[in-house]
Computed example of a mutant assay.
Amino acid sequence: MDLRKLTDDVSVSPQITAADVPHIAGAGFRSIMCNRPDGEEPGQPELCDIETAAQQEGLAFTCVPIVSGGVGQDDLNAFDKALHDLPKPILAYCRTGTRCTMIWAITQVGRLDSDEIIGCADKAGYDVRAVVDQMQR
């Protein structure tokens, strides 16, 4: 499992499995957000299995499925609402963690300084410079 902290409230991860959920709960997370459509690729863990495991561990769970490369305003709004509503800290996951990080960065433009957004993502191993620069224009 590869948990990468963006802020005290939000971390991201590549795809998780139901077997990872007890470890996620043990790491102190209170919520899990899936940003991957179910069935995006063959062999992908079933969303319902991860949700059930989260519920068994007492974690809040939500899915904001975002098609890679096809982010719309409704996706951004749903992601932002989940960040606001879910108990923190939150673990958001997708296939590699990049999608979650990019969406997080977009939703933080105007709230956090652009250097802070870029720095948080960079420490987690993701480069969001281009998306933050684009959003600033």
Results as ranks from 00 to 15, higher is better:
P89D: 09
I103G: 08
L86A: 03
Y126A: 03
A121G: 08
L112P: 05
M102N: 09
C100S: 05
L86Q: 08
L86G: 07
R111Y: 03
D80Q: 10
G70D: 15
G69D: 00
G110K: 09
A92R: 06
R111G: 14
L112Y: 11
E116S: 15
C120R: 12
T98Y: 04
L86R: 05
W104V: 07
G97V: 12
A124Q: 10
C100A: 07
A124K: 04
I117M: 11
D113V: 06
V109K: 14
T107M: 04
A78M: 06
A124I: 05
L76P: 03
D85R: 04
L112K: 14
L76W: 06
A82Q: 06
D74A: 15
G72C: 05
V71Y: 03
D85N: 09
G97S: 03
Q108R: 15
I118M: 10
N77C: 12
L91K: 00
C94P: 11
G72H: 11
G72W: 07
G72P: 00
K88G: 13
Y126N: 07
I106R: 05
E116K: 15
A105I: 08
V128P: 08
Y93A: 03
T96M: 09
I106L: 15
A105T: 11
D127W: 08
W104F: 02
E116Q: 14
D127L: 01
I103D: 06
G110H: 04
W104C: 01
H84T: 15
T101D: 04
A92H: 02
I103E: 02
G97A: 03
R95Q: 06
R111T: 01
R95F: 01
G69P: 06
G125F: 07
C120E: 09
A82T: 11
A78G: 07
G97N: 12
G72F: 07
D85C: 08
G69E: 01
A121I: 01
G72Q: 00
Q73L: 13
A124G: 10
T101K: 02
I106S: 05
A92W: 00
A78N: 07
V128W: 00
A82K: 03
C100R: 08
I103Y: 01
D74L: 06
L91R: 08
V109W: 14
C94T: 04
Q108G: 08
R95M: 10
V128G: 02
P89C: 08
G119D: 08
Y93C: 00
